[in-house]
């Protein structure tokens, strides 16, 4: 039996790396990088699922209208929508990071939490 799910395997490994980075890293920028990796892994997975061996992109160029000639276009549409969502989430996270950095002059989230607690007392 030949093993051919390379894309899916890569996607799952990347998802795991991104997830743990987002959860465990102290540095806010690294957290955002982790988030981007996590989302990119899901898009890789979706794109891999939409691809069918030996078929082309669903754009009618030379008059072939048979469904058999083309890959599934839905996952590509989902990936595009997902990219828009993750871009806006990344923008909001970066904006939050800028605001925190201007206030506390550090990117270390644990230190920021400690500083906030000190500020309050």
């Amino acid at each position: 039996m030949s093993f051919h799910n390379y894309e899916e395997m890569a996607a799952m490994i990347l998802f795991g790396i991104g997830f743990t980075t987002l959860l465990l890293q102290k540095n806010l920028i690294k957290k955002i990088i982790g988030f981007s990796m996590m989302d990119a892994a899901i898009y890789l997975f979706l794109a891999a699922k939409g691809y069918i061996e030996g078929r082309t992109a669903p754009i009618i160029a030379d008059g072939v209208t048979s469904m058999e000639a083309y890959i599934n276009p839905i996952p590509a549409g989902l990936v595009l929508t997902g990219i828009v969502v993750s871009v806006s989430v990344t923008a909001v996270m970066l904006a939050l990071t800028v605001r925190l950095y201007r206030r506390y002059h550090t990117l270390d989230f644990d230190r920021i939490c400690a500083l906030v607690r000190k500020e309050e007392q």
Binding site: L28, V89, V92, M93, L96, T97, R99, L100, R103, Y104, F109, I112, C113, L115, V116, E119, E120
Partner: peptide, 11 residues
Amino acid sequence: GRTLVAATRYM
């Protein structure tokens, strides 16, 4: 400060 940290945790 508190709301910013809370929002980051929330996100």
